[in-house]
């Protein structure tokens, strides 16, 4: 969680310094997203969980074991960026080795694509499930309805966990001005989909809600819709200023208070830990800014595949 925050703060700074063109990311979602990463059944292929994530999922990737430096590389759009080799914005992860499908900019499309990996897993059986995640404003797109309908077809229910991280904002448009439904999770009910709402700012609430939802999807092979209420701590993206929003609950403070109250980690220890991570992050950053950009002719790579990688050809 802490590394996720330090990473995002470094990314924001890089954008401001002109070391990257655009920032978008997950400060405010670390508590919930770290739990997603820790609870996912990590691996490649149908027996493991597929993740169709949102562009605020850095803490999920770190929890899975992705190194922070790779996110810095994508921010600086260098050729060493393992997720897109300098082609895509930061936060647009992709890692086939861990079933992390490419994160894309068009809002909500992942809810239409996720039904496909879930359908393959339904047929395959076993424990692997599909996890798909997006924001609250995006649920107005048809792709969200697609996911509700296709995951609950009679006798063809899908092992899919739909997650809506609800920060109550689109870019500048508040949910209360556009949405009449009381809770987004309620939309699952009409389809007989089990639902829950958790406090995504609280690690314990997030952990137990996710654990329960994943256990249900894994065992029952049926869909689940989980709404996680979260904060948006640095605004939408660099285009809206990316300044810290004091009025929002900060999940790191919630956790630090709990750790201190229960005698696990004092505020001083937390502070020292943060400083250590910041020092590492600075060193990674200094390395990344020396790495080369892609060459113009690299643009012509990877238009067509000559092997079926996803089908197992090496």
């Amino acid at each position: 969680m802490l590394e996720g925050r330090v990473l995002e703060e470094r990314l924001i700074r890089m954008q401001r310094q002109g070391e990257g063109y655009f920032w978008i990311g997950g400060p405010g979602e670390e508590a919930f997203n770290a739990c997603v990463g820790l609870l996912m059944k990590q691996g490649q292929g149908l027996d493991y969980d597929y993740l169709h994530a949102h562009y605020r999922s850095s803490a999920t990737l770190l929890a899975l074991g992705a190194p922070s430096i790779d996110a810095l590389r994508q921010m600086h759009n260098v050729k060493t960026d393992p997720y897109s080799q300098g082609r895509n914005f930061v936060g647009h992860f992709s890692k086939r080795e861990w079933n992390v499908a490419p994160i894309t900019s068009p809002i909500e499309v992942q809810f239409s694509i996720a039904i496909g990996t879930a359908h393959a897993q339904r047929r395959h059986g076993g424990e692997g499930i599909t996890i798909v995640q997006g924001g609250d404003a995006g649920t107005a797109e048809g792709d969200f309805a697609t996911c509700l309908v296709w995951s609950s077809r009679p006798n063809a229910e899908l092992p899919i966990l739909m997650i809506v991280t609800n920060n109550e904002w689109g870019i500048s448009t508040h949910a209360s001005t556009q949405h009449g439904e009381k809770n987004i999770a309620d939309r699952g009910k009409a389809f007989g989909i089990r639902t829950a709402i958790c406090d995504g700012n609280d690690v314990e609430s997030a952990w137990f809600a996710l654990e329960e939802a994943m256990r249900y999807v894994r065992n029952e092979r049926r869909p689940f819709l989980l709404q996680a209420n979260v904060s948006r701590l640095y605004g939408h993206s660099s285009s809206s200023g990316s300044n810290y929003v004091e009025s929002e609950t900060d999940c790191l403070n919630v956790l630090a208070d709990k750790l201190a109250a229960r005698g696990f980690r004092s505020p001083d220890e937390t502070k020292r830990l943060r400083e250590q991570i910041e020092a590492s992050m600075r060193a990674w950053y200094e390395q990344v800014i020396t790495e080369p950009k892609p060459d113009p002719e690299d643009a012509f790579d990877f238009v067509f595949a000559d092997k079926n990688h996803v089908g197992g050809e090496a």
Partner: peptide, 20 residues
Amino acid sequence: TPLDERGIVGMAMGLALAGQ
């Protein structure tokens, strides 16, 4: 399938990603 072209294309993409 349901009467949903976006779902049809999305289903195909997801199946393909899953090695089908």
